[in-house]
């Protein structure tokens, strides 16, 4: 049996007959929480060397993504006093 309360946890009520939107909310929240990822990963046994490699890769990717997003934010920033310094 599932340990969480059924029809209370992981449940979205349908409002105004908008079933599609409710289904999308369920899917979005589950994927945001990483439940789908965990489910996909645990279908087959992951050998210790594979787990080590995956976690190292994720660490590196997180560092790279953070730096890259900051760089992109820096390049794309718009709220500056002189929007194009050095140009007329």
């Amino acid at each position: 049996m599932l340990r969480h309360a059924r029809f209370l946890a992981r449940t979205v009520l349908v409002k105004d007959g908008n079933v599609d939107a409710a289904a999308k909310v369920v899917n979005r929240l589950l994927s945001a929480d990483g439940i789908f990822d965990t489910w996909r990963r645990t279908r087959f046994y992951e050998k210790p060397y594979q787990m080590r490699r995956r976690i190292n890769y994720q660490k590196c990717k997180a560092v790279y993504d953070e730096d890259m997003s900051r760089k992109i934010q820096f390049v794309l920033r718009k709220n500056r006093k002189d929007p194009f310094p050095g140009c007329y």
Binding site: R6, F7, A22, F44
Partner: peptide, 22 residues
């Protein structure tokens, strides 16, 4: 008339050992 949508996918971080990889 669909009242609610629930997900009850069984999901564990450390399940009993699954089958070997394909």
């Amino acid at each position: 008339n669909i009242v609610s949508i629930t997900d009850s996918t069984r999901c564990s971080e450390n399940p009993p050992r699954p089958r070997k990889q394909r």
